[in-house]
């Protein structure tokens, strides 16, 4: 396509010059979180493989179907463990003055951006495995519904706490400005 596409037909401001959230440098999650991911996905995979093995030996005795299905499940499980490790490298968050972005996913990538002025509340949680590795996860809630809640895992408890208080302070500021 030769014509340069622009966001607006009559731009009031130059869209290209707006700060681009994609150009931000992402803060990577704690390296220990990679291990947490490996462990949790290995646990889930193990359960899935075990249950399917159990079910297949009881239900279907015809070997070509059951064995190939089982091999398929095992391959998927191994893949999901590997994927969780690779995907770790693509996770990260970026803080700006007025919003926070979180990136994730290796093949299927996603990036969520939440302006502080829309934050309802934040909380910090620690999963069972998280605790072993001294990590926390920060969740930022908006009124946009469950699928838009931003969860940043793999943070040091201290970082999570600082992030949280920064966000809440910014939210408060923006509501004061709004009056």
């Amino acid at each position: 396509m030769s014509i340069k596409e622009e966001l607006f037909t009559n731009p009031q401001l130059n869209i290209q010059h707006l700060p681009d959230a994609d150009l931000l440098e992402m803060v990577r999650l704690e390296p220990a979180y990679k291990t947490v991911r490996y462990i949790s996905s290995a646990l889930i995979s193990f359960i899935v493989v075990f249950v399917s093995w159990f079910a297949l030996t009881i239900q279907f005795k015809e070997w070509p179907y059951s064995v190939s299905l089982f091999i398929f499940i095992v391959l998927i499980s191994v893949w999901s463990i590997l994927y969780s490790g690779i995907a770790y490298r693509y996770m990260g968050y970026a803080l700006r003055e007025k919003d926070i972005s979180f990136k994730s996913g290796w093949l299927w990538r996603s990036m969520t951006t939440v302006p502080f002025s829309r934050v309802q509340h934040c909380d910090i949680k620690q999963g069972l495995i998280d605790r072993r590795f001294g990590l926390s996860r920060l969740t930022i809630y908006t009124a946009g519904g469950q699928s838009t809640d931003l969860m940043i895992p793999g943070l040091l408890p201290d970082t999570a706490e600082r992030l949280k208080s920064f966000i809440l302070k910014s939210t408060e500021q923006s509501t004061e400005e709004r009056v």
């Binding site: 093949l107 299927w108 990538r109 996603s110 990036m111 969520t112 951006t113 939440v114 829309r118 908006t142 009124a143 946009g144 838009t148 931003l150």
Partner: peptide, 8 residues
């Protein structure tokens, strides 16, 4: 409230 961008 929020904007998400996904890509496969």
């Amino acid at each position: 409230q929020t904007v998400q961008i996904h890509s496969s």
